[in-house]
Design a protein around this nucleic acid. Structure first.
Lengths: 157, 157
DNA sequence: GGTAACTGGTTGCTTTTGAAACCAACTGTC
DNA sequence: GACAGTTGGTTTCAAAAGCAACCAGTTACC
């Protein structure tokens, strides 16, 4: 049967398998050896970068939905890798940050993850790395635009 | 806390979210409107391209593992979009191909998917598209090498 | 100040995924 | 031709993702 579509040149497929392979390879570092899930890892990185945040902000920064964030935070609190204190401006929310143990754990994992990333990016010249991130930016932007157009004109919200 | 790692410049994260957004956007076409899952879609595309294949070959061509293939094929057979006949050389295996209904369905979906892909790739010049696929190729190659090295030297197999 | 709509966050439930056990059939070796 | 090891494919079971309901607290409006 004649068809124009071949998976090897189909971006959704290529992007999906690449992401999966990357994730499997990377998660060996923090999942198998430190018992940290992908969601928990993202929360750790974000709090390490920003200091103190509400769960909602973590979700926005990581593109995780609130259920994922809630469960990841619960797991990290169980292991006392996070601290939670009430937010005085809004008593529904809480402020999260890494505990001392969380910082120590993060500092053990981070260099290994960075080394792994260097090894993955090794075959790419610096300019190619820039290009790669620029292309990803463009595609995400375009997707956002496509979503907007798809939901527009569907009657009043 | 000072750290070198920021999610916005971390390839695993960027690749993961991009793949997820692409998948959500695309699957609106075949999931919501035709009731085809991602795995089933890949089987359809592969059989449309290659004609008649064993489940194992479908798995190799699509990077799906055999459980995924098995379930996708079962779903498609239920809806009579596939034909299965015994393989005379190996009676464990079966040969799969699209049924007439499967071809018709595929021919309805394919143009919509191609149009969607064009719309996604619209902001990329032809040369940029080539670059993107080349970069993905390089990264997958590197990952394969990293996996080899990781499993090498772990004692006799 | 009371009530309706909304929001941050959690919980419960259903659907999806993935790993490993499993079955039947095939291959090689003796 | 019997036995050990392998392979194509399915099933089973447990972890994970996604959805909707929910609770408590907040905002907006009359």
């Amino acid at each position: 049967m004649r068809n124009a579509l071949s998976l090897t040149r189909f971006l959704p497929y290529r992007c999906n398998t690449l992401a999966r392979k990357i994730s499997v390879s990377l998660s060996r570092i923090y999942t198998e050896r430190f018992g940290i899930s992908v969601a928990e890892w993202r929360v750790l990185v974000t709090l390490a970068e920003y200091g103190e945040l509400q769960a909602k902000q973590v979700g926005e920064l990581t593109s995780m939905d609130k259920v994922q964030v809630s469960r990841a935070v619960a797991g990290l609190l169980d292991r006392e890798l996070l601290l939670r204190r009430p937010c005085e401006r809004d008593s529904r929310a809480a402020l999260l940050c890494l505990s001392a143990a969380g910082v120590r754990l993060y500092q053990r994992i981070e260099p290994e993850v960075l080394a792994w990333e260097q090894s993955l990016l090794a075959p790419l010249a610096p300019a190619e790395r820039e290009t790669l991130f620029a292309l990803i930016d463009k595609l995400e932007l375009q997707l956002a635009g496509m979503a907007d157009r798809a939901t527009a004109g569907q009657g009043p919200v």
